Amino acid sequence: MVPVAAATDAAAASCARHTTGACKANSSHPRGVTAKCKDGSWSRSAHFRGTCSGHRGVKYWYR
């Protein structure tokens, strides 16, 4: 997981179609991140299964 403070190294991206919550197109997030967890941490997981499992699940998926 990437600390929330790392969000300053943001890259624009779109939310994946299967995301939950109110994710906006072109929202900022750290480079290389694939998901934002419900506890506010970031994930670089290459697979859907188990992503953010210790962080209350996935809030947003990024492409």
Rank of each mutant, 00 (worst) to 15 (best):
K24R: 15
S45D: 15
K36L: 13
V2F: 09
D9Y: 15
D39S: 08
R56W: 01
D39H: 03
C15T: 05
S28F: 07
H47E: 14
G21H: 02
P3A: 04
N26A: 14
A7D: 10
T19G: 00
M1W: 01
C52M: 06
K38A: 12
Y60F: 13
S53N: 09
M1N: 07
A13S: 15
S53D: 13
V2C: 10
C15K: 06
H29W: 08
H47M: 14
Y62E: 00
A12T: 15
R31I: 13
V33F: 02
G40L: 13
R31G: 02
R31L: 11
A12K: 13
T20S: 12
A13N: 01
S43W: 03
G57F: 07
R31W: 06
F48V: 13
T34N: 00
D9I: 14
S43T: 07
P3Q: 06
H18Y: 13
K38T: 10
G32C: 03
K36W: 09
S43N: 05
G32L: 11
R56L: 12
A5R: 09
D9E: 11
R44S: 12
S45L: 07
R56K: 09
T8D: 15
F48G: 15
V58Y: 01
P3R: 04
K24F: 10
R31H: 06
V2I: 14
V4E: 10
D39Y: 01
S14E: 13
A6E: 11
